[in-house]
Design a binder for these strands. Structure first.
Lengths: 210, 210, 210, 210
DNA sequence: AATGAATGAGAATTCATTCAT
DNA sequence: GATGAATGAATTCTCATTCAT
């Protein structure tokens, strides 16, 4: 499981680092927080656990962050962006329609396997930072809906309620990521993705004969 | 939001009530715990909050339960069963294939709107009681996969990886329940369900002309 | 380790059993208390532990005893008497002087090995029931001093401060009982006792030559 | 009753003070604990009682110690060393044989009168920290046995089982310390010690005529 | 007499946050 | 900037004792 790489402009307002030394300390704190939250969860995590991992004194934490909540929020925002970026990067530029959704799912599964701790952190935000959690999933759903809209415009995707479809597709992706990414990553992605592609493409019903 | 109705054999081992009075007290504690966990979440919830709602002394909690964890587990198990029961009850006996999945989604959405606190409690189990959480979703996925198997046998559903499909369908249902049940229940279920039915039935791709 | 057999008239004042059934219940409570205090010590012991061992309901305890302290005091008194009785019984009637002390030590060592829990209970009374503890050791010291007085009168024991001697002898006995009775009972009593007899008889100094 | 002076390296592992201010606070806690345990006993003592005496906040206790048990253990270890040191200091360098035991007893009686709370704390360790209790008395017995061995080698003390003798002498000393030191310190030490010296020297039996 | 449910005061322990150095 | 000691509110859990049945 690779380490997360949060952006460096995540300090609480008025606490931005002013020196290179300060920026390095803040970065160590963010990396340490990603590990601590990923391993222990938000509530079990402790500031002292973060500073111990970061190798700083306890009080140093408050040089850059206001509270446990604020560093958590900073992380969630950052990771939400990472997930979006990974999904975008995993899709070929010219890809459209169901093909594009297939590639996005594959990219997401690879990302979930690579960054299980990110998965956990974002998911726990449902309780620890609901605002960021909603922002993450609403943003993701909007991006999916936007892709579907493009697919419709291109004549590749049928007309329908693309918001509902986007939430449905996102739910599929997330649960498949949990089951076949975080819990058990032994099944080849190449087995999972085609099953979903077929479902999205043509559904699962056998058309009644006429 | 209706109150949950936990089964009455949920005490910690060796702490089962031996009189009717005791059973009634334990029931009050379980109902109070459902409210407390639903409103505050597992970590913010407190034993004293539970007993305050239940109208008992603090110590009375420990007459029936060992810890906050143990009553939470008891609740999750119970609610997991409630969800399964509601889903089963919402499906007409002779229903098969995609029809059955449509009915199950509708039943689930109604249940999520009716019991938002259950939704929240089960979801938080991902962190507070992972064993029960896995048991819940694995059980649910197995039931869905079983229905798909029957649909395949009946010639209503195409061949395919029913385990992957089951997780995909479950993810769709859960996220739609979150978005259109718990977060915002103003959109008619009759608008959401057909969109998903169509997706399951025939997919969203426009078959390329030939 | 044999079970202690407390006398049956140990109820708290006004709570003496009035029926044979009641007397039996109280006896079960006393036996259970001896086990519980012996195993767990006064402070770790709990009333519910006692009633669990006795097979009675919690509330039944208070039918016969006022408090944890009162049953402990009852036990200590009773056991103090047991120790005295065992010491007396272990000494042959005609025995006098140092012989008698040797026999008393041997009897005490055998008793300590046989009733380790009594040893522990009496010792813990130093903190849990100081009045009974003092009464026990002052009574024991007086009996020893009385024996020494008789020995002096009989011309078997030299003149000296018999109170100080009694406390010295009692201390020897108690610590030997702890070390070679309770902690480790593998060394034959026949090895320990003669060493002490020789000490009491003639001391340990080699008389300086003349 | 003089205050105990515990050594300053007694913090729980990983909690050693890193500044002089921290060391001073820890010292205040240890002194306060000696008073609290001495007056109230281990079980009646409370962390809050200790911090109240020390003039610190409750949480400060946990900056240096893990639990009530751990500070108690630290104290017992420290006091055990104090007793040994006092005994050693009370014996003149060239003293040998029974003379040396006489001086050791006198030193111990003075120490017990001076530090009644130490007496109590070590004694209660029999129940609250049995490991330290055994270590204390086994160490003490070994030192006494070592002195006896030297006396034998010097031709001042007769051959015999010096381990048994050491436990006998230690028991004498401890009980005399309890009776004539802690419980009642009004009797001059100069009255007690000679009686014991005579006993050790020549025993108490009148040699039968022949 | 016996039962066991209910009580609530009390204790230990945690940890986010503040602050003096 | 960095440090780490100090704080104290909050929480969980225990258990002797009371009381209604």
């Amino acid at each position: 499981m690779a380490t997360a790489k949060p952006s460096s402009s995540a300090a609480s307002p008025g606490k931005e680092p002013r020196t290179a030394r300060g920026a390095a300390t803040m970065r160590r704190l963010l990396d340490a927080a990603a590990m601590e939250f990923g391993e222990s969860g938000f509530y079990e995590a402790s500031i002292s656990g973060i500073t111990r991992r970061a190798g700083t004194a306890l009080g140093t934490f408050y040089t850059y962050f206001d509270s446990k909540e604020s560093i958590f929020t900073a992380l969630v925002r950052d990771m939400s962006a990472s997930v979006a970026k990974a999904a975008a990067a995993g899709v070929s530029p010219g890809s459209r329609g169901v093909d594009r959704e297939r590639e996005a799912l594959a990219a997401f599964l690879r990302f979930a396997r690579e960054h299980k701790e990110i998965y956990r952190i974002i998911d726990e935000a449902e309780f620890a930072d609901p605002v960021s959690y909603r922002a993450h999933y609403q943003g993701t759903a909007q991006r999916i809906a936007g892709r579907l809209d493009e697919g419709v415009a291109a004549g590749l995707i049928s007309h329908g309620d693309n918001e509902v479809r986007a939430w449905a597709i996102m739910g599929m992706n997330v649960f498949l990521g949990l089951r076949f990414g975080v819990w058990d990553d032994s099944r080849p992605i190449g087995v999972i993705v085609p099953a979903v592609e077929a479902l999205l493409s043509a559904g699962i019903a056998i058309p009644s004969k006429r």
